[in-house]
Design a protein around this nucleic acid. Structure first.
Lengths: 158, 158
DNA sequence: GATATTAAGGTCAGAGAAGGTCAGGGTGGT
DNA sequence: ACCACCCTGACCTTCTCTGACCTTAATATC
């Protein structure tokens, strides 16, 4: 139990914390500042953003380089209906990795669209092991399954 | 019988001990830590988990690799009855038509094992349209999906 | 106004830190 | 002697973290 929490988790928690404490729904910070606060390489911040603040998980990261550069991390709200339709259509036509699906499920759970139990159900259903197909097919099927889940959640009649 | 203190037995007892002493019903440990505690090869831990902490025996093991990796051993609340294990095994090896799946889902819902919403989710997920594969594969996949659902319902740790 | 400097952030390969798998040898009981 | 169980070591996969190098923007200098 040495590493009760590694860097990536601590930084993730920190960002989510200030994101919660802020009313606007976004944070603006400096990469270098955050890095020195956690005494790590600046690129570690990019790693955190790339793995924990993805679009699937409901975040948007904007940035600016150069003098006065910054990172702006936005927490996206529950999808607007039209955005959702587009997203479902994309899924139906495309693929989704297990990681991406897990991010999305996590987000749906966080936003209260899926209960813990429901999230668990969906998670096992789209699991690699369960699907047991080879890769292009598996990711396509997973995408369709997630699309079906979203479509069901979008129904309001039960 | 002589050797009641095999490594495997000692490690098993140790894990069960801390599992009992903990109120949450699960333990989080590091494989490497446990291995050095018992002065054995790390893979021995996997052997213990694979032989003594299986789903049939009422345990669930989740893990994470990489830096900050861990093992999470969960004691399931209710041991799954044998007939359910058999049924799940059959499903995993066999096929299930959409009709059969709908019948099963309906029954699960009637017995209160699935909420209305959950039933709806599962129903869309195993739907012909969603799966969109040709028939022998589709029915096999549906069987695996239903097996995954049943296995999740048997968990009581969330 | 053009150019140089400085101050950001971005990318990617590779090292490091876990856990997973499997073949194969050991051991004890019958 | 055989069989089932135990245990290890070599090799694999996944996740994390850093450092070297690159791009972009603001500002200072000429």
């Amino acid at each position: 139990m040495v590493n009760m929490s590694n860097l990536v988790d601590r930084i993730e928690r920190h960002i989510k914390k200030i994101l919660q404490d802020t009313p606007q729904g976004y944070v603006v910070i400096q990469r270098s500042g955050l890095a020195s606060q956690f005494e790590c390489a600046p690129s570690q911040i990019n790693y955190v953003l790339g793995t924990r603040f993805t679009v699937e998980q409901g975040y948007l990261v904007e940035s600016r380089r150069g003098g006065g550069g910054y990172l702006r991390i936005v927490k996206l709200g529950i999808e607007t209906p039209d955005y959702l339709d587009d997203f479902i259509a994309q899924l139906d036509a495309g693929e989704m990795t297990q990681n991406a699906a897990e991010g999305l499920i996590k987000r749906l759970a966080e936003e209260g669209l899926l209960s813990k139990r429901e999230a668990m159900l969906v998670r096992t259903v789209v699991d690699r092991e369960t699907l047991s197909l080879q890769v292009p097919e598996r990711d396509r099927l997973r995408a369709r399954l997630m699309a079906a889940v979203l479509r069901t959640l979008a129904r309001e009649d039960f």
